[in-house]
Simulated scan of single mutants.
Amino acid sequence: MALSKNTRGVFFAIAGGIGWGFSGACAQFLFQEYGLDPLWLTSTRMTCAGLALIVVALVWYRRALKGLFSSWRDIVQLMVFSIFGLMLCQLTYLVAIQYSNAGTATVLEYIGPVLIVAATCFSACRLPTAREFIAMGCVVMGTFLLATHGDPTNLVMSPQALFWGLGAAVTAAIYTISPGTLMQRHGSIPVVACGMLIGGAALCLVTQSWNFAPEFGEGALDAEGFVALFVGLILFGTAFGFTAYLQAVKDIGAAKASLIASVETVSATAFAVLWLGTAFEAMDFVGFVFIMSTVFLLANFRSEEAVRE
């Protein structure tokens, strides 16, 4: 019996969120066990996932993929999205994981929607609504609790983790805003596929990240690390995660899909605790609740129609 469109959309939104959360845990595992460089990991993740999604686009969205490069305006917009949105979002997120853990970095990244609200209010020269104002307050309180556990004289999170986590939130907001109507004109999968490939290739060339590539074999990146990298992080966490989420957006709409896909934070935290043995204190979870409550407070905020990291 065929699934209804709504049921299928909910399933894929959950699957995409779990995939993203698992990819964060895989990144934490690779940092902890193999000391991989985030520059190399980001460029490899994006390039490989971009190639996988390009194959999908060539099979099912060839006309849209070709149309994406038919206008200089679209090409410039794609470049901005690829480098200043998608690539920086991926890089800051992975560096935040390196300095903290998958759960904390993922929750901090979810400050991004509140930054979008603030930017929208500023550009429209209006004050936040009551719901938006409460969401901003929740973000401030949640970040404060994560960073200090309620004691302003004691920073329990490293300054680097806080800096890169907030950077991931800022770049996630840029990533959401920067494509504009590009996805509406050409479809999500062609835009994200090209964005992944362009962003990964640009980072690789600019930073010469191949100089930070790990050695393969015993004593370096062994079979377990290889599986975590290429199966967990790239194929399941990135290529499948994005494809599943985009299908959910198509089936049930961006607002509902993004709300359901916020299971990513639960997924990332659960994998960090159960698989990697990461320890969280009660105040960490209180901070998580404050920040994630903004997802529900802003569920009807209509400016967030683009696809996230």
Rank of each mutant, 00 (worst) to 15 (best):
I116A: 06
V117W: 14
F122S: 09
F122W: 14
S123D: 00
C125E: 14
C125I: 10
C125H: 13
C125Y: 08
C125N: 14
P128C: 06
T129L: 10
T129Y: 02
R131N: 08
F133Y: 11
I134P: 00
I134G: 00
A135M: 05
A135L: 03
M136E: 07
G137T: 14
G137P: 14
G137H: 07
C138N: 04
V139S: 01
V140Y: 10
V140A: 15
V140S: 12
G142N: 06
T143H: 00
T143A: 03
A147L: 07
A147C: 12
A147F: 01
T148L: 11
H149I: 12
G150F: 08
G150C: 05
T153Y: 11
M157R: 03
P159Q: 13
A161M: 09
L162P: 01
L162W: 00
L162S: 01
F163Q: 05
F163V: 09
W164Q: 10
W164S: 12
G165R: 00
G165S: 07
L166W: 04
A168W: 02
A169F: 05
A169G: 15
T171H: 02
A173F: 01
A173P: 04
I174P: 01
Y175K: 08
G180M: 00
L182F: 11
L182V: 10
M183I: 03
M183T: 10
Q184N: 08
Q184E: 06
R185T: 14
H186D: 14
H186V: 11
I189Q: 09
V192G: 07
G195V: 07
G195Q: 02
G195W: 02
L197P: 01
L197G: 01
L197M: 08
I198Q: 03
A201G: 03
A201C: 10
A202E: 05
A202Q: 07
L203R: 03
C204E: 13
V206M: 09
S209C: 04
S209R: 00
N211V: 04
F212I: 00
F212Q: 04
F212D: 11
A213E: 14
A213M: 15
A213S: 14
A213N: 15
G217N: 12
E218T: 14
A220D: 05
A220R: 06
D222A: 14
A223V: 01
G225T: 08
F226N: 13
F226D: 04
V227Y: 11
